[in-house]
Design a binder for these strands. Structure first.
Lengths: 206, 206
DNA sequence: TTGCGAAACGGAGAAGTCTCCGCTTATCGT
DNA sequence: ACGATAAGCGGAGACTTCTCCGTTTCGCAA
């Protein structure tokens, strides 16, 4: 099942052009500047080409987000691996909490772009690569913490907490501080550990 | 500060007309039929009037949803009050679980309309009356279960689990059964109870 | 090379959402 | 009753997003 034949040279070139133009407009004019029309003009390309390459406005925005997600992922893994240990290696509960805290910062940092994405297509988030990878990572850690839990469900539940619209509402309308989001996630993680493996030993430290 | 002066008679009449027309179109043509243009025509009213009354497409859809939410709320409270006891009165944990289970059904039943609403405005959900009331109700029950927890945060977290886009993804793309959503919520509620109220030993982080 | 089919391009215009503003209507004080 | 005034109305058209399809380009094979 090799499926996808490679992109033709002109197509690849235009994809790059469009992404570059979009990044430029985003930096210069904010998320509002990402109108497909404007991007096409900036990239010296027809509107049709934008749609052929990215499907719709949401696709364009998600492509930009994937870029940032890749950078985030690389940065996160790098500091964890190389960072002189940080002393927490191995304990899945700590690792899960650290990952979630990093995600909170990621979401808060890119809130504007994420809101555009969610607005352009509220369902697309769950189908995209970033979500799938975050979900897989969290699911594994949950399984390590609470083997009997429905890890797939719980991973979605933790991530649901970071939906852009909700975060924006909490932070902007209700005055939440990001640290409160992190503390809340800690509670949820604690609950998962405590609530599902109550039998044997409490999941205490060594 | 009495604020809002009452709506003029013609305004109220048109609001009704528009809502009725919208409900009719929804029944006949599905959520796609809710184009402001079409609704205006069906209601014998100018497009401008639709926008004056409801602000935007999202506002129109949310108005329809509030109606259904009111019905849901009435039905839920009725069965709980009159329903021959059901034997569970008073225990907040059971009450919370029952409420959440009912919400799962509500969301699944109205998924299509909720998706349109979320798509029209991903943030509006959190500002609307249904969300606020559900949130308040859940928050109180959580406080009864775990007085030291950040009930406001946790209420959002439980409701985040029911975001239309996520539910649609789980049910339609990943084949979740609604009962799995209910079971997952039970786990989360259990975790809240176990993780935060130190019945025995705190499942203590350092 | 040259020819050919598949892929990609471009941009006019369809479709949908929303705004603007001149005109109409309701309400209230006199 | 009767203006005065604020509220509401309607729909043309601006603006955005997306589609459609005739034309161009690419890549392969003879």
């Amino acid at each position: 099942m090799s499926a996808a034949p490679p992109e033709r040279a002109d197509a690849a070139r235009n994809r790059r052009r469009i992404l570059d133009a979009a990044a430029r407009l985003l930096a210069e004019r904010g998320p509002t500047g990402l109108a497909p029309d404007a991007v096409a003009r900036e990239a010296n390309v027809g509107v049709g080409t934008v749609y052929r390459r990215f499907g719709d406005r949401a696709g364009l925005v998600f492509a930009l987000l994937e870029d940032r997600d890749a950078r985030f992922r690389a940065g996160f893994d790098a500091t964890r691996t190389a960072g002189g240990g940080k002393g927490t290696d191995g304990d899945p509960r700590t690792r899960l909490r650290e990952f979630l805290h990093a995600l909170v910062d990621l979401v808060v940092d890119h809130l504007d772009l994420l809101l555009v994405a969610e607005s352009a297509s509220p369902e697309a988030r769950y189908a995209g690569r970033p979500y799938r990878e975050q979900h897989a990572r969290i699911r594994e850690l949950i399984t390590a913490i609470a083997p009997d839990a429905d890890a797939e469900y719980l991973a979605d539940a933790l991530l649901a907490t970071l939906a852009p619209g909700l975060v924006a509402h909490r932070v902007r309308e209700r005055g939440f501080d990001p640290s409160r989001l992190k503390a809340g996630l800690d509670t949820l993680v604690g609950g998962i550990a405590a609530g599902v493996t109550p039998d044997r030993e409490p999941p205490g430290p060594p």
